[in-house]
C-alpha cells in the first residue's frame, strides 16, 4: 500500500514507493529509498511537489505484532531448559526465538485471513 503526500509532509524514515523522475523520464531517486532530511531540500531544488510513499504498518498492527512477539517469547522460554551463556548458545537462542516469532505471526495472519 502506498499514498501520495505533499513534500512538506515528508518525515525522515519514510520510504519512497515510486521513483522520482524528471520531465525527461530520468530517475532522480529510486523507489525503496529511505528518506532523510537532505531529500526534502532536494525535492525543493527539483521542483517536486508531491511524492508517493509506502504506508507504514498501522499502529494496531505494530501493537498486535508486539503482543505476538511477547507471546512467542514466553512460549519459547517455557520450552527452554537453560538460559544462554556462551556465544553459541546466544546464537541458537536468537535464531530460534526469531523463528518462533515468525511462526506465530504467520499462524496469526493465516487465521485472520480465513
Amino acid at each position: 500500500m502506498s499514498s501520495l503526500i505533499n513534500v512538506e509532509e515528508v518525515k525522515p524514515g519514510m520510504v519512497l514507493a515510486a521513483p522520482i523522475m524528471n520531465r525527461y523520464g530520468q530517475i532522480l531517486l529510486n523507489s525503496g529509498i529511505e528518506l532523510m532530511p537532505k531529500h526534502s531540500r532536494l525535492f525543493k531544488t527539483w521542483g517536486i511537489k508531491v511524492i508517493t510513499i509506502k504506508n507504514e504498518s498501522s499502529e494496531n498492527d505494530i501493537i498486535e505484532n508486539n503482543d505476538l512477539r511477547n507471546e512467542a517469547k514466553i512460549k519459547f522460554e517455557n520450552r527452554l531448559l537453560w538460559q544462554p551463556e556462551t556465544p553459541i548458545e546466544h546464537n541458537l537462542y536468537e535464531v530460534s526465538l526469531n523463528k518462533a516469532v515468525k511462526d506465530l505471526i504467520s499462524k496469526f495472519s493465516h487465521e485472520k485471513s480465513e
Binding site: W82, N91, E94, V95, S96
Partner: peptide
C-alpha cells in the same frame, strides 16, 4: 516432547563449531 535441553559444551567445543553457525546457516 517439546522441550529444548542444553547442548553439551564439550560437544561443540570439541568439534570447534563456529559461534555464528546457526545464524549463518539458518
Amino acid at each position: 516432547d517439546n522441550l529444548i535441553p542444553r547442548m553439551n559444551k564439550k560437544a561443540y567445543e570439541s568439534i570447534k563449531l563456529k559461534e555464528d553457525f546457526f545464524v549463518t546457516n539458518y
